[in-house]
Write a protein that binds this DNA or RNA. Structure first.
Lengths: 235, 235
DNA sequence: ATGCTTCCTTAGGGCTTCTAAATCAATCTA
DNA sequence: TAGATTGATTTAGAAGCCCTAAGGAAGCAT
């Protein structure tokens, strides 16, 4: 019953969970998302069917857990890129984190696609789900960097009064949600950048741009230049 | 055997196809994409299971056909919006088509999501599928408008030599693919606008922006303003 | 050593996709 | 008009899926 124990059972369970995740990922990468079924994963791990229900309540929960893993791995990759240039100006760290994001997405397209094009059930949207938590930590990487930039070298922002009322309200709510670390106007710039960056990557991974581009690297770099301008990184 | 016949059988078949599509759509809208199964659709239509295989080779093909329908409906909505202002300057028609695109997406979120986040097997991405054809016609709405704009009131473009070589090659290829109706530099501007617009809508429908926004209308309008600037519509 | 918890099994219901074979009816042909 | 062809639909069934229920075997605590 003691809290921090790592009994034999505990260790075994942890190892099994690792195996399960690895099996699910292997199936996803090698045979696509439809192949990630409870039965297939169980077979891969070497146990039969319903045994998996001792680890996850159902298919949705398994999917959510694996997705959280991917989110975490992506987040870690971005944090590493950021910390690899720990003494560089914050602008460079932002760009490094963005490039790390795309690098991870390109290196793990199935996983990246899974993150947000996975069969998303309302279950996984619950704020207590591991998936949701991992998503929040993911968001925070660029948010924290942007806050640091805002505090050390504030970027240009629009007049709050120039924004439509409805947008103003939403930005104010968002600003409050991040404890006011960015005022609404700055949050607006941040969110605009975020939307463009993430949107571009989503479309790349979902193959929505294949009709025009075969290699999005220069397109992504141009997007980064636009963001650099918006964030005043090229002054 | 004659080509344009509309024999009794032909008519019946067409009617049944319509019923099938309507049933699939109803299931999608009311119970989500997972509910669109061959059996469920057949039940809805009033026939039992395998009868549907006389209309579609399998689940994937049914999905592809329904998706093509949605694409077509979206395209038609945009074309109508464009033609409703047939005598307005082309800039206004572009904006009208863009707004119609979002209006349709908001009015039919399940269908719009289905279009590009459907459980799609790579099979359906092949060029011979109806889905692909519908996708191309969809693209062409804004492309044609942009070409018209380019021919009547050319928008500012970057120097081709300022672009990275890899991007230049891709743009040249794309420009050739549209019969040179836009030169590579203009194609670049068009694709940038397209990417931003479509990307924003994708993220909205996939609920990737829910963490910050509850109503994306002002965000979308701001995006349109950016595009207007890029296309020189506000001179 | 005895009981409790955890892990894993088999059995089974109800759903799915999809194939095969049979049937019935409408259409085409001679 | 009679016969053959074609099409639409049905049932039966194999293989797979998710998930529940019930039972055995092992680890852990007292």
């Amino acid at each position: 019953m003691s809290a921090g124990t790592s009994s034999r059972r505990e260790r075994l369970r942890r190892a099994t969970l690792g195996e399960i995740h690895a099996a699910a990922r292997k199936l996803l990468v090698e045979q696509g998302s439809a192949a990630v079924t409870i039965n297939a994963v169980a077979r891969q791990v070497g146990m039969s069917g319903p045994a998996l229900y001792h680890y996850y309540a159902g298919h949705d929960e398994l999917v959510g857990a694996v997705t959280a893993d991917f989110f975490l791995e992506l987040t870690t990759a971005m944090e590493h890129a950021r910390d690899a240039h720990a003494d560089a100006p914050v602008g460079e760290r932002i760009l490094a984190a963005c490039r790390a994001m795309r690098a991870w997405a390109r290196a793990h397209p199935a996983e990246f696609g899974w993150i947000f094009a996975s069969p998303i059930t309302p279950t996984n949207r619950q704020s207590d789900s591991a998936r949701h938590q991992a998503g929040q930590r993911f968001e925070r990487v660029l948010l924290d960097l942007t806050v640091e930039l805002w505090n050390t070298r504030p970027f240009p922002v629009p007049e709050l009064d120039d924004l439509p009322a409805s947008l103003r309200e939403q930005l104010t709510a968002y600003s409050a949600g991040i404890d006011g670390r960015l005022p609404p106007e700055a949050a607006h710039v941040f969110l605009s950048c975020w939307t463009r960056l993430y949107g571009l990557l989503c479309m790349e991974v979902l193959h929505q741009l294949d009709f025009a581009y075969s290699d999005l690297e220069p397109v992504f770099e141009e997007c980064l230049r636009d963001l650099s301008d918006a964030l005043g990184l090229r002054a």
